[in-house]
Design a protein around this nucleic acid. Structure first.
Lengths: 200, 200
DNA sequence: CCGAGGTGTTACAGATCGGTAACATTGGCG
DNA sequence: CGCCAATGTTACCGATCTGTAACACCTCGG
């Protein structure tokens, strides 16, 4: 319907399975979709899935790793679009998140996965934590490059606002507090950047 | 272990089941715990559960309704502790959330439930939405009472920060961005309250 | 043409899930 | 005591879940 993975029969079954899994995971939750539904949406079969992935958890890990890689690619796109301009990259990043709040093609996968995979020792947890740490480091660097004095503080403020907006979107809908996310986040950036040359 | 519901045999089986369900839902996720585990933790049995609740979904709804009622009680406690002082109630509310970020006895139930119950027509969705709307109205009223000019904006800022902090706690741990939540949120309150008598 | 590797099909195992029926047990109240 | 309602016990149903075994297919390089 929305993205007919079955019609992409020229792609490898492995890629179709991963894409179908990511789509269904976003739509029905990781625990709410079974491998049968995944291979059905991918126009493949269970045997092929288990020839590429040792278990469903292994497939989940691969899905999250791909989501992280796509995010890394987006960081590079931002750097290319605004080379050396951390402030512009930050604002473009926030604007993109605001624009994609309604759609489910965003990278909410990694955070909603953390809510759904409550087991502390699930193999995906390390993937999530590694991605989160890398993202934080990169945003801090952008803030510092933008001339913000307290880069860590702005970074954490933005991260809290972003994930709060994504979560609120799911519980309160588009007309809830997440509707004001773009303005709030951009105001925070400008507020910090404005007092850039005023340490303390 | 942590809270031995079984030893509270004087309480009604219904209450023990609901409490055990809420505890396990928080710990392993709504979809990650079965009715057998619930009645086992409650030292009851499946038949008694299904005599009180027509289905597992019905039990979920009751759990969320109780979480919402406890939140209403907390609003009343705040009003009693700081009668008529919206600013003090806001700051006490934020401080309490910050203190309870690590523990799982907070009311994250209603928001994490929204992530786990992806079906748009799940009976719990209306409970969640109703609670969220009421919470927003109440916080807006507190902001307005605190003399804040743009009460809705501060309310939504706080709501985004709070849910972002709770979500980040689960994916990045206690040392992540959520560690700075208390300072960020309190600064936001004071910033808005400071410019209270300066509309626009 | 032929053999081999990746793929698809069918069937099934073992476990767990939500939910129910029939019956035994308990505790409180007259 | 004896009754009654709530609760507990056991066994089970059908559906669904992850994961596997055996076998058929099909394409492509030598």
């Amino acid at each position: 319907m929305t993205t007919d993975i079955c019609s992409q029969s020229r792609r490898s079954p492995r890629d179709r399975i991963v894409d179908a899994a990511r789509y269904l995971f976003r739509k029905h939750g990781i625990r709410g979709v079974g491998v049968d539904a995944i291979v059905d949406a991918a126009c493949s079969n269970k045997m092929t899935l288990y020839r590429h992935f040792s278990s469903k958890d292994d497939l989940i890990v691969e899905c999250l790793r791909r989501a992280g890689m796509e995010m890394d690619n987006y960081w590079r796109e931002l750097e290319d679009a605004h080379p050396g301009d951390g402030l512009a990259q930050l604002r473009a990043w926030v604007r993109r998140i605001a624009d994609h709040l309604g759609a489910n093609d965003c990278n909410c996968e990694l955070m909603s996965a953390a809510v759904q995979l409550t087991d502390e020792d699930h193999p995906a947890r390390s993937v999530i934590k590694r991605f989160k740490d890398a993202q934080r480091d990169h945003v801090v660097e952008l803030c510092r490059n933008a001339g913000v004095a307290n880069a860590e503080l702005l970074c954490d403020t933005l991260l809290l606002l972003i994930e709060g907006a994504r979560l609120n979107q799911q519980s309160s809908g588009s007309e809830g507090p997440s509707a004001r996310f773009a303005g709030i986040a951009d105001a925070a950036i400008l507020s910090f950047a404005g007092s850039s040359s005023v340490p303390e």
